[in-house]
Design a protein around this nucleic acid. Structure first.
Length: 787
RNA sequence: GGGCAACUAGCUCAGUUGGUUAGAGCGUCUCGUUUACACCGAGAAGGUCGGGGGUUCGACUCCCUCGUUGCCCACCA
């Protein structure tokens, strides 16, 4: 009957409009129900190619949200967009081929704002297409005034608590983005390189001193040579001096236990700075600083004839010169891993600059302890957080020498350098556009102030999201009910950034863990299990899938992802989802045609037949399991339970069991009551996963007896408590089903249609005679014989 | 180098405190239009649960070990 079939394209569009117009997902802050707040990940609006991976990770929180809404919580599900900071800047630079130095700050920011507007609309369209039940009246963006105000308040609060400090120290520096970056912004990259063996000269006796280095371009920045005090080869060198080749200056030779005797020649060159070891040794031995790298990645005046060269070019030319002058003894090919900036892939350097830091190293123990205050789903992801906190080496650098971000609310006294801060009620401020209210520096009385022109790390803002969303409401009582958030859903790769930084903030500001539950998702992969990437072009356009199979079908696939695990794109699963919506629709047609718009909501348990008790018992079981699964964030497992019940128990068996009672001249009213109970529960239990078809079914029939204007505002199915317990009868009925299966098998083997009545069947299972009529009616047999 | 996960049918995956004959979907094969649905139904074939040890009356499940894959972290001047 094609004219009755479910036109998902038209109906899904209809319900999308309905949900929007009726504000079905609007949060009611006046509600007395317990709140359930979701600290939704604000996506980077710079993502210009949304794919099924995004669908997967965002629908995971959505399944839970819809469940919680039905389970009696007042759900607060806002949406944010992360549109400040480097990701957006890099995106705009690439898209328009801009260079931040060749465009005015104002113009650049304008472009960024334009792009973020486009980006957020793209996201919203996709989320609505999928039926993500966000309250779109409550949104924020990380560059808006509200977020800026909270980020700046966070700065002031941490400053007053002594956790925010300005340090003039070697810091990770990206020469491509020309900004300081944090430890968490680094990524590993394997590189083929050379270990160069280079001769220094001992100044006391003129003998050659062979060192090994991968960074010959740092020769002009050499601070000292080091040997292990236990290294007999160099026992006489300690305290003497060496001459640096090419650059011809004197450096001390010192000892340090940390020098690996077996690496290279055992004689180590320490520069300012090639890596963390250099920083450690420079500090420990109080070495003079010879910094040679400019912020733009070119060598400074210390490099003599190599001044102005970029690092890679300098390396090449210095190697040539060393060869020429016979300082280069040999080169060994090596493969090593270096730290690159994750946004651009450029190797980071260590450059001494003045930056703002949030102290995290001295709170390591407390930050580890915070992990125990939250429920991790899955639990093993907690380990990643702990590992990260344990291995932290640097405080969190939050200054970025960029344009598009939240400004620092600070000026400096030109005379003494004192930091001048605004009052909280004046936030947000842009110090480059306004002056401080106080006219005199409290430290020295100076009257001339310099604004801080750096902007904050994007995580400085997004680490405040639990506060940002709770403060979308003015009322302090509501804020208190929304913070900490109930749930933080997020992907695993930002545990060390978003998750960690949010914990830091919440701990310093309020001494609290920022959320109660954490749900960590994996990634969507392609059919072969490969990461989806722009470069490989292996991504599937969600809009095409929705056009072909419907949003419910795509969601069905996404429900298959176990928390913390990656999910392969699988078109078969999407087809299965599509078939499930069709099956639900057809089952609805069957039930509703027998209901004829009459109310069967009341269940009279005294009239129940064994098959009724059986299906109701199975339903109770399914509700129990699905509820427990959703409560444990195990929506994939819930889906399996629900599918099994609907497809097998309900459709394949129960519907067949009751047909003979429905097609009688006087149809059985009890059967209809049971059908009502079971199918109404099925409709609701599928609603978090398949919200469109669930809504369709609701409005086809149930709506006329239920008050709620949407199935998504109805209550989650409850176990039917009034069901009489009859374990013996249930067991007997399992035997009855076994006999029916045997008859089906017999017919199948005999190539007989299941609809065809056979004269006799000999059951070799013990079944009470009282079930014979039932078996005969359901399995179409004239006579049952018992062996 | 340290850590975390995974390895079950041709494919994608379930299998929750150890307990009859290890399951599903898809795919394959056979059959069936049956007054919700052929986007369906019935049935069949298909697995030494990565290898090897051990604990136990009993191990896919617990322990040890090895292997493969993926991820996270640290790295050597």
């Amino acid at each position: 009957m094609a004219e009755n079939s479910y036109n998902f394209t038209e109906r899904e569009a209809h319900w999308r409009r309905f949900w929007r117009e009726q504000e079905i997902y609007k949060f009611n802050p006046e509600s007395q129900k317990p709140f359930y707040s979701v600290d939704t990940p604000p996506p980077y609006v710079s993502a210009d190619h949304l794919h099924v991976g995004h669908i997967m990770s965002y629908s995971q929180a959505e399944f839970i949200v819809r469940y919680k809404r039905m389970a009696g919580f007042e759900v607060f599900y806002p949406m944010g967009f992360d549109d400040n900071g480097l990701p957006t800047e890099r995106f705009v630079e690439k898209k328009y081929r801009l260079n931040k130095n060749k465009i005015s700050r104002a113009e650049f920011i304008k472009k960024c704002l334009e792009e973020t507007k486009i980006g957020s609309q793209t996201y919203r369209n996709l989320w609505e297409l999928l039926g993500i039940s966000v309250d779109w009246s409550k949104t924020y963006s990380t560059i808006d005034r509200h977020s800026q105000k909270i980020s700046q308040w966070s700065f002031l609060d941490l400053y007053q608590k002594g956790k925010m400090v300005r340090k003039d120290e070697p810091t990770f520096w990206c020469v491509a983005c020309q900004t300081a970056v944090a430890q968490a912004d680094l990524e590993d990259k394997e590189e083929q390189s050379f270990l160069n063996y280079i001769n220094f000269t001992a100044e006391q006796d003129g003998r050659p001193l062979l060192i090994a280095t991968t960074r010959p371009e740092l020769l002009p920045a050499c601070a000292a040579l080091f040997v292990n005090p236990n290294d007999e080869r160099y026992a006489d060198l300690a305290g003497k001096t060496a001459r640096v080749p090419l650059f011809d200056y004197s450096v001390p030779i010192l000892t340090d236990e940390a020098v690996d005797i077996n690496f290279g020649t055992g004689l180590m060159m320490v520069c300012t700075w090639g890596d963390n070891e250099d920083v450690v040794k420079t500090k420990a031995h109080n070495l003079p600083i010879r910094s040679t790298i400019n912020p733009d990645g070119r060598l400074n005046g210390l490099a003599g004839e190599f001044t102005g060269l970029k690092l890679t070019e300098a390396r090449k030319q210095i190697i040539e010169k060393l060869k020429e002058k016979n300082y280069l003894v040999k080169q060994e090919e090596i493969s090593h891993i270096l730290n690159v900036h994750e946004r651009c892939g450029t190797p980071v350097e260590l450059v001494k600059t003045k930056q703002w830091f949030i102290k995290v190293l001295d709170a390591r123990a407390e930050l580890l302890a915070q992990a125990e205050k939250m429920n991790w789903h899955p639990l093993f992801m907690k380990q990643r957080y702990l590992d990260w906190v344990r291995t932290l080496k640097w405080d969190w650098c939050i200054s970025r020498q960029r344009y598009y971000g939240v400004p620092f609310p600070v000026w400096y006294c030109r005379n003494c350098g004192e930091a001048i801060l605004p009052e909280v009620e004046d936030l947000p401020v842009d110090p480059t556009l306004t002056s401080p209210k106080i006219k005199k520096c409290p430290a020295c009385g100076g009257k001339d102030f310099v604004p801080e022109s750096d902007v904050m790390d994007t995580w400085m803002t997004s680490s405040c999201t639990p506060l940002i969303i709770s403060r979308l409401f003015e009322d302090k009582k509501i804020q208190a009910r929304l913070y900490p958030s109930s749930l933080r859903p997020q992907a695993f790769e930002i545990i060390r950034t978003w998750l960690f930084y949010t914990v830091v903030k919440s701990f310093y500001h309020h001494g609290l863990a920022p959320f109660f539950d954490i749900m960590i998702s994996g990634h969507g992969h392609d059919e072969k299990g490969q990461k989806i990437s722009k470069r490989l072009g292996n991504f599937v356009d969600p809009e095409k899938i929705v056009a072909q199979y419907g949003a419910d079908a795509l969601r069905y696939w996404a429900t298959g992802a176990n928390l913390g695990e990656n999910l392969r794109y699988n078109e078969q699963e999407i087809k299965k989802g599509k078939r499930t919506t069709t099956k639900l629709y057809n089952a609805a047609q069957f039930c509703f045609s027998h209901f004829q718009n009459r109310d069967y909501a009341k269940l009279e348990t005294k009239n129940l037949l064994p098959e009724d008790k059986w299906i109701l018992a199975r339903l109770n079981e399914t509700i129990k399991k699905a509820t427990a699964d959703f409560d444990a964030y195990q929506y994939a497992r819930a889906k399996n339970e629900i599918d099994e019940f609907f497809w097998s128990a309900f459709c394949d068996n129960y519907l067949e069991f009751v047909k003979y009672r429905l097609y009688r001249e006087k149809p059985d009213e009890t059967a209809k009551q049971v059908l009502y109970q079971v199918f109404w529960a099925i409709s609701r239990i599928y609603a978090p996963i398949l919200p469109f078809i669930a809504e369709e079914i609701y409005h086809l029939y149930f709506h006329q007896f239920e008050k709620a204007k949407s199935i998504h505002l109805c209550s989650w199915p409850k176990v039917i408590a009034s069901l009489p317990q009859a374990p013996k009868e249930e067991k007997e009925f399992e035997q009855v089903i076994a006999v029916i299966l045997a008859i089906r098998k017999f017919k199948s083997e005999q190539k007989i249609s299941l609809a065809k009545e056979i004269p006799e069947f000999a059951a070799d299972l013990p079944v009470s005679e009282k079930y014979f009529d039932f078996i005969k009616a359901v399995a179409k047999v004239e006579k049952i014989a018992v062996k």
